[in-house]
Design a protein around this nucleic acid. Sequence first.
DNA 1: GAGCACTGC
Length: 948
Amino acid sequence: MGELASWVSDSLISLSVESRPVVVQYVINLSRNSASLTDLLNSLVLELGLSSSSSETNDFARQLFLQVGGNSAAASGGPHLYQTREREAEFLAKKQRTYTLLEADESGSGGKRFWKRIKSKASEIENLRRLSRQAYFKRREAKKLQELKDEIEDDECLLSMGVKLSEAEKLDLKYKKELYELIMKNRTRETDETGEFYRMPEAYDLEGRVDQDKRFAAPSNRYCDANASDKMNPFAVNEAWEKHQSEKATLKFGSKDRKQSSDEYQFVFEEDPIKFIKATEVEQGLLSSISEVNTTSERLADDRKSLPIYQYKEKLLEVVKDNQVLIIVGETGSGKTTQIPQYLLEARYTRRGKIACTQPRRVAAMSIAARVARQMGVKLGHEVGYSIRFEDRTSDRTVLKYMTDGMLLRELQSEPDLASYSVVMVDEAHERSVSTDILFGLVKDIAMARPDLKLLISSATSDTEKFSEYFDSANIFTIPGRRYHVDIHYTETQVADYLAAAVDTALQIHVKLQPGDGDILVFLPGQDDIENAEEMLRLKTRGLGTKIPELIICPIYANLPTELQAKIFIPTPQGARKVVLATNIAETSLTINGIKYIIDPGYCKTKTYQPRTGMETLKVTPVSKASATQRAGRSGRTGPGECYRLYTRDIYNSMDENVEPEIKRTNLANVVLTLKSLGIEDIKNFDFMDPPPGETLTKALELLIALGALDEPGKLTKVGRRMAEFPLDPMLSKMIVASDEYKCSSELISIAAILSLGNSVFYRPKDKRKDAATARERFYMGNVGDHIALLNVYNSWKETDFSTQWCYENYIQVRSMKQARKVREQLEGLLKMAEIEVTSNANDLDIRMAIVSGCFRHTARLQKGGSYQTVESCRTVYIHPSSVLAQAPPRWVVYHELVETSREYMRQVTELKPEWLEKVAPHYYKLEDTEDCSSKKMPRAVGRACLN
DNA sequence: GAGCACTGC
């Protein structure tokens, strides 16, 4: 019995916090009227299994049942205890018998014995309760302690930046620090297993007098134990991994900076003034040696003055005053992003509203806001803040707001005239993300209606005339950059194999030139090439042995686990050289220190979209001139650089000036819905800087009409308005809206969240493919499609309380899951906005119906030979081999997306009954369309599909 | 029997 009790208490601790009290409560309740522990537990199992919908408590009940053992029901119980009515009846009968017994017992001579038993049980239960509480307090303590630590680090970080804290705040910090130290001292003692005893404080009243110092030190010395040794942490690897995941090596502020400060590397973003100070090290070195007593804020002020833009400050303010719209051209490093908003702030442009500065990337928005807050000596989130998806660090007093361009676009939905802003600065405009392009059209329009709004478009040097022309010949203000010279080398003849050529060039540089003078950065199109190049480099350097200096090979691409990404920021040791093999990620998103040599084969992967088929492709294409220049510029930040282009000068001359802006080569369904929700009726005549292909727009409009988001004349419907609340592809939004009807919104937001990630949640290491496949099959139990399988993955993960360990065991990518969880949380919050009730319904059919309501245009029918034909465009496609359905192809399927790789594949597929189509989209399908008939029919009407 | 440039809401 004791064994059983300890098993129960162990299991209790392993349950989630929500389930624990449920279980404990049942144990207590049942102990009052049950006869023996076995019966008690049987009843408990019954109660839990029947009355709790949580599968966790169910699972507990099942395990408990097996532990109790010796019961015929347990032996034949199978995975689900109460699957059948018969079984349920059997248990009810058993329960009844227990009560009968109990009564008999009480009335008869056995009464005393019974109460004794009950008492002992009660104490066992009390024991369980105590253990559970202990576990809870332990966790709570750890959490509170971490919070305290964070607060201290936050304050200290601010203090070190020269932020002035008030007396009360200083006192508070002092108190917090003391408290923390005290706790830590005590904890060191507690973790020492040998010292589970109270130690008498040292005497302080010996020798006939009281030693006051000793006396007051007593409470804090009490638990001090210097011998506490570092024990092995079995989870160390996981923890490190988690840490990396959650922080993703971004430059953060305050407590979030924890990792950063201890690391030897750091990200450097565009226009990092610190880097430029390094660039003029000689002069700065002299300065700082003279005035070493400078406070941080004084130094920051000096830094600000040393930026190229500083000398243009007055002139710039004058021009801004006279021009409503201004194009600002400045090379990276001129300080425009950090300084201009501050100048405008000083010039009191914020009297009537905030200053917004948009960035294409989240990390940029965060790090720049942090830097500006530091320069201004204010706490981040007060006067200076940032706003990105999942994180809004602004407050009522925020006047300078850095944000992602997509975020400003979202804000426009609730504030179409940007009334709370007096200045909008669109930064990095040359990158031409879809969001910036849309913003252009919108802010241009708003500026016309609001003469008091200042508009700044900031871009690196390229296409300035185009920008100016678009904004009705706006003036251009140029700020010279400051960077070192970069020598460009071209090949004499065209190289046959860019990969081999890149590897050889890297080795040549490494062998011929002294290490220590700079590292090498090679741009390659994708993960594949990077992996191959890495292998080639390893093979070739191994042959040379110690004859050449050490070469450290660092691959980097977005899909690389974060802890491996960090490797590229570790400074190169003396006598060695680093070669970084990177995708386009190193072109804009991150900067690596110490790069002197660039090798540019001239290729990158580009996504294109074919509106006719709705197919997306990712293909290796030559880069543009602008991109080549950008790549070359990745050296020469801290000293003169060299760039080796693996193509001839003639080829360079024949390259396109710029990459085609993204808006011209992407699916615009979401963009069109956003614009419609902003009240823009005539999308085709919207003032795009580069109009997207008409066919793409037509396709998007068609889709939105089919989904019911727009009516036939193209006006936004109620469904459309609800869909526009979600930051998702319209088909996914529609699934969620439809889920309201099928009462399964909770399930659908999970599915939509995972699908919106775009990348797979299943992880398949090369050496453990088989294990990964078997792990994955579990989620496909019952021959469900990909959509439901993804839902199963999410729900199972949730049941483990979002365990990382579980992910490893099941070959699931933790990073993707965590992202999905965040997205799901956001979607859950948005359900209310879209007037959708949060409802949960495990019925497969309902969930599938909701899915089909969203992707009914993406259907395909099985043909001979295992291929499919799409209903929409009659193309021959295949189920992607990553889907389990590829092994047993159903007659009809719906798919999430179409991709062209080695073949044309449908990704994320679910089986479909053709009659559902007629039910879900009667305006689009007619019953006879889905009936089998061999003769080919023409589409019935516009927007109606041919199903044969 | 495949694959994953990079962002963003």
